[in-house]
Design a protein around this nucleic acid. Structure first.
Lengths: 347, 347
DNA sequence: GTGAAAGCGCTAACAT
DNA sequence: ATGTTAGCGCTTTCAC
């Protein structure tokens, strides 16, 4: 016996195709019909076909999550949350890479193939073409990141400026005066806003010496390379470095160790994202928590809500930052005690 | 204007529906027809509908990757490789959680809904019901892990025994004689085989003192808890601990630090999986590389090959292990490769 | 509450 | 090489 279709079930149950479909989908049907159909369906081992149903209903039961690098811990964290939210509503999750700016636009255009009911996108770079594609798309999307004001697309954003301000504040309290910001690629959303946050937080503080460097990528290796160059240069020695993310921050710590610079005594280091890596490094890496898990969760919720009601006004949710202090900025706190304190997140 | 269908394109191009489809899909068609159709399609902004095509062709262009925890670095690494292999062949990747044993079976049964063309599964626990479901499934699957001999399912496996043997060998060479194995849940595939490898590698060595413990989970926290209990107990002090994976190994290092046990001087620690975490911890964690990236890549290739030809004999590929030595076992850094075992053994 | 029938958008026989 | 037509499996009017 080949594939069991709803027609087979109908025949076996002795009712019409239509009644069978209704009984199976909880539509109006007499109790007797429902019973007969259920029975027949289980006996036959009937499993409804996704493609046929999608073609008819114009819904796929699938959502997409698209990011630049699925390997980045921040995106993994988002993905976990998103998966758990959407799986609870019986949606499957498709993951895709955004690739470069053009590829990202293609990806959004491709949504019209109708393979998903919605998209959560976290683009590294936002172009006009992308915004246009997003607005024109018939498939609802939520962007995790920053879009131009007035874009008709739901967004969930981190408060990068506020977050970096917490880091700067913490360093100032600790007595740091010479603070460097080690950025990643500056033309990206995180690069731009985290850098802006640093400029804003340090501006107008006369006895502060600052400078900005940038790593070629948001990785440990790139952070290590940039920090090495930084330490080798003739610049004034820094009291502290704020890295654009934890990976780059870890790279800084590696470079520091190699240069005989001890953390936190000679140099304080702060990362951003508060990923699991922060508790693995030694000393633990103080990090700005931009709420990646919460952003993922929120994005999923926004998407589900919009799919439920396309007429909803565009929303922009901002997730508040917090600072998690660890050994890389204070001698009192070791990575061990930070670990023992579990999931504690300061507000 | 609503959705643009192939009928619209046909009309505009002035040719039949069938010719349009053929022209679009690279089937036999005159150059002139192809040109007209291409033209019409782009003018109209035609985008083929996935559901309709799937219903007709019985292919979705989607593959699934199912694991217990998408957050685990090992699975992330596999996923990256898988994504890159299948994306090159224009497949989309659906990620799902396996959940418990029953849920895993349900997941496999659910494949008959036809939402993917194939599955890559890395189950934590393999039950008879799972093997049966896999064998009965109409959708091809590749298992990353261990299946009972003779199961008619393609598998990609790590050489856990060989890998652990490398670790033991390394420790013996370094002079360790009291070696503990810190397992994870023992009823899982990794738990079982890695433990077996430890027993085998240490068996028959009279002047070796060994013991096995187990952590409740494959996580840092569980490793930390188990190691703490271990260090608190009255057992003979260990020269070395081999952890079931890197996460647990990191937990051991945290516990050791807290107990004033210094690594590697007082205690050597070895992890398994050789994830990125090994280079973040301090000292770096010596780790057995079981080839997770290669296993992911290989699994994807096997799956594509099987989809291409369902009549292929069942294959069991074994990926050779290697040991990456880092500071947690010695100051000098070297890499020991395993003797390459044959790849592509046919069952 | 139930059944007959239409049709979602596409591809693949089959005939020409 | 091209057109006609059937039909993938399902849901949803519409009429009773």
């Amino acid at each position: 016996m080949g594939r069991v279709t709803i027609a087979d079930v109908a025949k076996r149950a002795g009712v019409s195709l239509a009644s069978t479909s209704r009984a199976l989908n909880g539509q109006v049907a007499s109790a007797a019909t429902v019973e007969k159909v259920r029975q027949a369906a289980t006996e036959l081992g009937y499993i409804p076909d996704t493609a046929a149903r999608s073609l008819r209903t114009r819904r796929t039961g699938q959502l997409a999550f698209a990011v630049a690098d699925i390997g980045n811990p921040v995106y993994v964290e988002m993905m976990r949350e998103i998966e758990s939210v959407v799986a609870a509503e019986d949606y499957r999750l498709v993951v895709s890479r955004t690739g470069d700016a053009d590829a990202t636009v293609d990806l959004v255009r491709d949504l019209n193939r109708g393979y998903v009911d919605g998209l959560i996108l976290s683009p590294l770079r936002v172009t006009d073409a992308l915004v246009a594609a997003l607005e024109e798309s018939t498939v609802p999307a939520v962007v995790i990141g920053r879009l131009p004001d007035g874009a008709g697309v739901d967004t969930v954003m981190a408060d990068s400026e506020g977050g970096v301000a917490l880091a700067v504040e913490h360093l100032l309290t600790g007595g740091a005066r010479r603070i460097a910001f080690l950025n990643g690629p500056a033309d990206t959303t995180p690069g731009r806003f985290r850098h802006a946050g640093f400029l804003r937080a340090t501006a107008g503080n006369a006895d502060l010496v600052t400078a900005e460097y940038s790593a070629d990528d948001f990785t440990i290796d790139a952070g290590y390379a940039a920090a090495s160059a930084m330490f080798d240069s003739t610049e004034a020695p820094w009291d502290a470095v704020i890295a654009v993310n934890d990976l780059v921050g870890i790279g800084v710590m590696h470079a520091a160790a190699e240069h005989g610079i001890s953390v936190p005594e000679d140099l304080a280091v702060i990362g951003i994202d508060n990923t699991a890596l922060t508790e693995v490094s030694h000393p633990g890496l103080t990090s700005v928590d931009l709420g990646s898990a919460r952003r993922g969760r929120k994005a999923a919720q926004l998407l589900l809500a919009r799919m439920d009601d396309p007429e909803l006004p565009t929303r922009a949710v901002r997730v508040p930052p917090s600072l998690q202090v660890r050994g890389s900025t204070t001698a009192q706190l070791t990575s061990v005690s930070a670990l023992a304190s579990g999931e504690g997140r300061t507000t």
